[in-house]
Design a protein around this nucleic acid. Structure first.
Lengths: 220, 220
DNA sequence: CCCGAGTTTAAACGGTCGTTTAAACTTATC
DNA sequence: GATAAGTTTAAACGACCGTTTAAACTCGGG
């Protein structure tokens, strides 16, 4: 049998890696469009032109297949994020922008840009509780590193504020690549222009200190 | 039969409005937690302590029930948004903040705050294509009005930039009320503090002009 | 040449899905 | 009390769900 523990003995016959790749591609496309509930085992098998039992054989379960889909695309992005973060000059006046650049750039510009972007946006908003452990598996480490790095830029500010601002940036990033944002706001899909807009928006949002205290009127 | 066209003849017997309210409440709770695919007809009926056929009788279909759920909560929010937007002083230096305040406040503070917030965040990121027409039905008008109002504050800027910045704000707003944001970023759930943070973040993001041009290095 | 590990396959498993039907029930009006 | 509109109900509809089984197939190594 396979299930990762395979690939140890000699080659095996047919087109194993091809079957796995076809399953990954089909599952990815369906997940991006329709979420976890919408990527049905039969739809995946049909799109991949593969028998339905192949999913269980190669990935154990539907959740296992999704995990492989996520790791294939998002692990390289997070590696790139970490490498760029490590190259950010400490405490310089440009650090904030450089940190946000390191966080955003690998999502916009990488191998398979569009699938990776949409995949990320989709998984971060997925309601199915099966994906929660996958989210932590894939994202929690890198997020923590970025929050720590950014907090170092604002030693006087509440770290919880930094974390929440980062979640605003992540929200803007994720929402931007989802279909509702493009449809409802008529905004262009992700590209170089969108990247610069989002980066500048995030940098300005992180600038220190609230401008004016907020008014709490009670109009209906 | 019912289906909205009801309530025309005399009272009807039992507890019609009660049954409808129970269905609405149950569907709302399930949709918030699990999305459209996760709010199954049987789960709704069970939670509402109502026969499963009542959904079809009162709302026509599962999609019809979701539409009623959305309108019940989001229409009042959008009414409040419009009223507040109409009260914003034109072109004043505080207009930007006032417009964003009018956009965000009714989501955070209204009757049934938490359900309304989470409902909004969930529906804006829902993959199921059944909700797309509902999104346009509920949101497109109010969004256009806010983009137009904000564009008037920045007559020299590209309107597409304004629209995209608004989609960043909407993304930050929506993501903030979803569970992944709370879990991954350890940030507090929506409350007064979060509201002010988000408002200030949005205001700063809208400030005119990019700070520095972006660097396009190519680290791996 | 055949053995056996690795892979693919058809078929079926029990369950849940959204929706529909027709009969039973409730109640205001005559 | 009979009538009829409105509402609730049990039961079933066909379709699809994720997963599993056991047999067929592929092919390198003995």
């Amino acid at each position: 049998m396979s299930l990762n523990s395979a690939r140890t003995s000699r080659a095996g016959p047919c087109e194993t890696k091809d079957t796995q790749a076809r399953l990954l591609n089909a599952a990815e496309a369906l997940f991006i469009d329709a979420g976890y509930a919408g990527m049905s085992a039969r739809a995946i098998a049909d799109r991949a032109a593969v028998n339905i039992a192949a999913m269980g054989y190669h990935f154990g379960s539907k959740q296992g297949l999704l995990q492989a889909v996520l790791i294939r695309r998002i692990a390289p992005i997070n590696r790139s994020r970490r490498a760029r973060l490590a190259a950010v000059p400490e405490r310089g006046s440009e650090s904030v922008k450089a940190i946000l650049h390191a966080f955003l750039w690998p999502v916009f510009f990488n191998e398979h840009e569009a699938p990776a972007r949409r995949l990320m946006g989709r998984v971060m908003t997925e309601p199915a509780e099966v994906v929660e452990p996958l989210l932590n598996l894939v994202f929690s480490d890198v997020i923590e590193q970025f929050v720590v790095a950014m907090a170092a830029c604002f030693p006087k500010q509440d770290p919880a504020l930094i974390a929440q601002k980062f979640s605003f940036v992540a929200g803007a990033l994720n929402f931007t690549v989802l279909r509702p944002a493009e449809r409802l706001f008529g905004s262009a899909p992700a590209n170089e222009v969108s990247f610069e807009r989002l980066l500048n928006f995030a940098v300005d949002g992180f600038q220190e200190g609230p401008s004016v205290t907020v008014v709490h009127e009670d109009i209906v």
